[in-house]
Design a protein around this nucleic acid. Structure first.
Ligand SMILES: [Mn+2]
Ligand SMILES: [Mn+2]
Ligand SMILES: [Mn+2]
Ligand SMILES: [Mn+2]
Lengths: 216, 216
DNA sequence: TTAAATTTTTAGACAAGTCTAAATTTTTAA
DNA sequence: TTAAAAATTTAGACTTGTCTAAAAATTTAA
């Protein structure tokens, strides 16, 4: 149906479109670790296939057909990540690269059965929502921890940064998905925060607070 | 490490080498559904990488390094087939094409954990041996059913033909892996056979008998 | 509002893998 | 033992996806 490269472009356009209406050539080049000229070439192909709307110099967005493909790839990515963590006991910082390969296994029948096998999980190991078999994504609105004011309570429900380094740091601090926290204090000088979690105090930087997503 | 095309060539050479010492260009072209000239090009690449021994016009065989890669791909193929049948409830005639994609997922850590998760199965859904994590393949010697003489008993342990059509036929006749049979009679005229299985009589053609593998 | 900086596209090249057609080598069999 | 047939390789072309360098368009900011 679509090549591996095409699928990766569609997925990247989808992710970037979540924070900017029109996705630029350079944004895509940076995310895909390729050159702007290569991106332009591919955008023409995807536009020919009517998977994106592309006006030269104006950036792109997905058509309904393109978005459907992108969401399906993200569904597969997140279900495989869930499988790797829940069934094969990998840590949440180990699974992304494997899922990058597995998301391209083409069979939808396979992924629907995997979904059922695991009991239709709603979130992947990083707290991201798993689209259902009809392409429906339940995007819960989450606040970055940095915007929570002292005295308020919340639950860790996601991360903005998916790097191994950040995930390992969070694991070490026990700042994992589902944990309940209270913001005890914010330090004006560097915007660092002091949290209460399970009776203990944890101090985190503004950088960390910006990348932790909280439901209240 | 190696490209998808390279992996498929190595796997095909391995399979063909089981029945002919030196594998020919045309044999490979037929199995890979490609042209002899394409095969020649790839054989040069694999020879450069020292994964095969290649003398122009004389066919090829795998080096130790090439065989190791081929066996690892076959291990992954068969473990994923087992997963699809045992965990996701696919039928044995549905899993080959999916496994053809999944065998190229690169992580060995992943496949070793999958192996453990499933309890280290020894055979795939078609009765083929699953190589262990060190590349060791336990090849039990099996007879085609056509060479069993009347009066003898045996157990169905494998198939020579893996086509959907043949596997579906066997399923319908309940001629599946593990079934115990007795050869009641062979018909001289067309070499067809009458079997006793679970108290019932089954008549099969010479063609079918040639493609069923029996342990006595 | 225009010049400079930035972004994007175009032009031309390259590697991987495939193809057809033609040349070469090996095998078969008269 | 040699001519025909079959198998294999070579030559040249094409597609996909990538790159660098240069040209063109857009944005920024003086
Ligand atoms: Mn991921
Ligand atoms: Mn994830
Ligand atoms: Mn198979
Ligand atoms: Mn099999």
């Amino acid at each position: 149906m679509n090549t591996l490269a095409e699928e990766n472009y569609l997925k990247s356009i989808y992710h970037l479109a979540l924070s900017s209406a029109n996705v630029s050539t350079n944004q895509l080049a940076a995310l895909l670790k390729t050159k702007a000229s290569s991106v332009t070439d591919m955008l023409k192909k995807l536009a020919d296939k009517e998977l994106i709307n592309y006006t030269p110099y104006q950036g792109v967005n997905l058509t309904a057909a393109g978005e459907k493909i992108a969401v399906n790839i993200i569904r597969k990515h997140r279900l495989w990540e869930y499988f790797l963590v829940e069934k094969l006991n990998f840590k949440w910082d180990q699974v992304h690269d494997m899922a990058e390969e597995m998301e391209h296994i083409s069979s939808n029948e396979l992924i629907d059965r995997l979904d059922k096998f695991m009991g239709f999980p709603k979130h992947d190991p990083h707290g991201d929502p798993i689209p259902d078999c009809n392409g429906l994504v339940k995007t819960h609105h989450l606040e970055p921890l940095s915007s929570i004011v002292p005295g308020q309570h919340g639950t860790i429900c996601g991360v903005r940064n998916h790097s191994t380094m950040f995930l390992q740091y969070l694991e070490k601090q026990s700042l994992t998905i589902g944990k309940k926290i209270k913001v005890a204090e914010t330090i004006e000088f560097d915007h660092s925060m002091i949290l209460q979690m399970e009776g203990k105090e944890i101090q985190i930087s503004r950088e960390v607070a910006n990348n932790l997503l909280i439901a209240q």
